[in-house]
């Protein structure tokens, strides 16, 4: 493609001065990463999808719970449904009920944002501009974690308000200051934030979008299923499984804590511990490896 090129004489170009302009600092790197995150179409698409899916699942579950409530209110049917969870208990979990899908989508976005830089070669531009590397990665992690938190907590809050009229028809409504309700909503965001750090660190280490998505989804969502299938009979597996990142996340959004289970804060320590460990490893490795 032939393009007219303006040949600006040297004298008209901005004059050069020694050590003239501002240098790199974290605020500027943050702004740069913000521009990068918001100028890729997949970001907007995945965020919108996440919110729609999470709210949709919550609305469906709320609707379904009203049927369960009706059934349990009927003494005859309730007798047949012995052992089934109580509708009132389920209704408390509704705001964050789309969390699994939220994790799937936001973990994918986190991996895509970093691994696509390697895939496209953009990472070389990034690291030439920010040669200490760590601040570029931290800025991206921070932006993605904040976005994930807002998507998670926001979706849960919207879900709450959409679910209330549906639940109200069956007398299952509850207020935001009900025991644990607000923490459940906030922690739906916190889980997504920590999961995004986890996934982005995996993406940083693997440097490949497909590999990063498969690995992080595998650890976060498939591993607990495998453990449930094969580890049920072995006690030490069940014990160890409580320390999986996914188990930590589950406890963070739990509205009722069973005896002997970790509480919300302990759950946060487990998931947060995994995320921070991987983050630290990814920073050290990226600092050392050639780009």
């Amino acid at each position: 493609m032939a393009t007219p090129t303006s040949q600006v004489p040297a004298a008209q170009r901005p004059r050069r001065q020694r050590e003239s302009g501002p240098g790199v600092n974290f605020g500027r790197v943050l702004k740069s990463e913000w521009i990068k995150v918001t100028t890729i179409p997949s970001t907007v698409i995945l965020i919108a999808t996440t919110v729609i899916v999470m709210v949709g699942i919550a609305a469906l579950l709320a609707w379904q719970t009203t049927f369960l409530f009706d059934a349990q209110s009927n003494p005859e049917m309730a007798a047949q449904m012995q052992g089934a969870p109580d509708a009132a208990e389920i209704s408390r979990d509704i705001p964050g009920s789309g969390l699994i899908f939220g994790q799937l989508l936001m973990a994918s976005l986190a991996v895509v944002l970093i691994a696509s830089e390697w895939g496209t070669g953009m990472i070389r531009s990034t690291m030439v501009a920010v040669p200490n590397r760590t601040s570029a990665l931290l800025a991206k992690q921070l932006i993605m974690a904040v976005i994930s938190f807002l998507v998670g907590a926001g979706s849960a809050l919207i879900s709450y308000f959409i679910a209330q009229p549906i639940l109200g028809s069956a007398d299952l409504g509850f207020s935001l200051d009900a025991d644990g309700a607000l923490l459940h909503i906030i922690n739906t965001g916190s889980v997504l934030a920590l999961v995004s750090v986890f996934a982005m660190s995996v993406g940083t280490l693997i440097r490949n979008t497909a590999g990063g998505v498969v690995t992080s989804i595998g650890v976060l969502l498939v591993l607990p299923i495998l453990v449930a299938i094969f580890g049920g009979s072995t006690e030490w597996v069940a014990d160890a499984a409580r320390f999986l990142p996914s188990s930590g996340g589950e406890q963070m959004v739990a509205t009722t804590i069973q005896d002997g289970d970790f509480n919300q804060w302990q759950g946060a320590l487990i998931l947060g511990g995994w995320s921070l460990l991987l983050l630290a490893v990814s920073l050290v490795v990226t600092k050392k490896r050639d780009v």
Binding site: G23, I35, A129
Partner: peptide, 15 residues
Amino acid sequence: KRSAYNHLRAMAATH
């Protein structure tokens, strides 16, 4: 997937 303008803007922002 990014436009040339946004690419340069992101690079420029760091400095």
